[in-house]
């Protein structure tokens, strides 16, 4: 494998990694703080993508569409939290799995009703459709670099939010001792809603960035949801830091798992299974993941 190819693949895997991190961050926070399994997290990824595609078609403005789509995903998330999920926090995990499975069916069907069953193919915004030669001889799409940069920026923002703000302090406190935060007079219900909406906003952002690359269609959030689960399990459920590290690892393994068999003539069977084998291996030695959030 040439060095150029290697570096290019590295960029691709980083890009997948940050997308997975955006998904995993919300999911792992919701678990850490509310002790809630949310299978429907992928639906917000899909909603973000659909909203952004529609907004761009109607307004033509990227700068307007992106924030609106993120807000839209957060708003849908808030509605879901207030109407449904709130009643599930005290329930066992089976109830949560079932109810959020029901939500997936609902949202996948809803976008088919609203947008039709076919996929929407959206263009990469003209502003970002060029290529740059980061490395001489291997031009790389600007858009993918932007996705990468935006993902990393969000990671830094999350770190700042959690490590340096009052909200972050509450989130950290909530993750380690839920009842104590309530006893301190914090409005727990509002904190939960806020955290959930934040997670949905991140998922929506990940989805809208993926739209031009993978296409926008019903059920698009399902495949990435499972990979996100792998990330969370590897990273340690509830741990943001674990999610970040695991997302990058899974991005690497998935990308190189796809290209190495092609180059080395290995059976392609390895490609799709690679991240699950990785997960099995890590779990064997560390059943609670790399960075267990709590004992």
């Amino acid at each position: 494998m040439t060095v150029l190819l290697f570096i290019e693949q590295l960029l691709n895997s980083l890009q997948l990694g940050v997308t997975l991190f955006l998904m995993a961050a919300g999911l792992t926070l919701v678990f850490g703080i509310m002790n809630m399994v949310n299978l429907a997290h992928g639906s917000f990824y899909m909603i973000g993508a659909y909203l952004c595609a529609t907004l761009i078609q109607h307004t033509g403005s990227l700068l307007l569409s992106v924030p609106l789509a993120i807000l839209g995903a957060a708003a849908v998330g808030l509605v879901v939290e207030l109407t449904t999920l709130r009643a599930l926090y005290q329930r066992d995990h089976l109830d949560q799995v079932l109810a959020t499975f029901g939500l997936i069916l609902f949202f996948n069907e809803l976008v088919k009703v609203l947008w039709g069953p076919g996929a929407i193919l959206i263009d990469v915004p003209a502003l970002l459709s060029g290529r740059v030669e980061l490395i001489p001889g291997a031009p790389y799409p600007v858009y993918r670099l932007v996705v990468l940069a935006a993902g990393l920026a969000i990671a830094v923002f999350l770190w700042w939010l959690i490590a340096r703000t009052r909200l972050g302090m509450l989130i950290r406190a909530g993750a380690s001792n839920r009842t104590m935060v309530g006893a301190l007079g914090v409005n727990i219900a509002r904190l939960y809603s806020l955290v959930f909406a934040l997670g949905c906003a991140l998922a929506g952002f990940a989805g809208l960035m993926a739209g031009p690359i993978y296409g926008v269609e019903a059920g698009m959030g399902d495949a990435i949801l499972i990979k996100t689960f792998v990330v969370i399990v590897i990273g340690g459920i509830g741990s943001i830091r674990g999610a970040f590290v695991a997302a990058l690892i899974v991005g690497l393994v998935d990308t190189f798992g796809r290209i190495l068999p092609v180059l080395l003539g290995l059976p392609a069977a390895l490609a799709e299974m690679a991240i699950y084998l990785l997960m099995a291996g890590i779990l064997f030695f560390k059943p609670a993941g790399l960075f267990p959030a709590r004992g």
Binding site: A99, F101, G102, L105, F106, E109, L110
Partner: peptide
């Protein structure tokens, strides 16, 4: 579009 009803019914 029966899943539009079935999904919430599960909930």
């Amino acid at each position: 579009h029966w899943k539009l009803i079935f999904g919430p019914a599960i909930v």
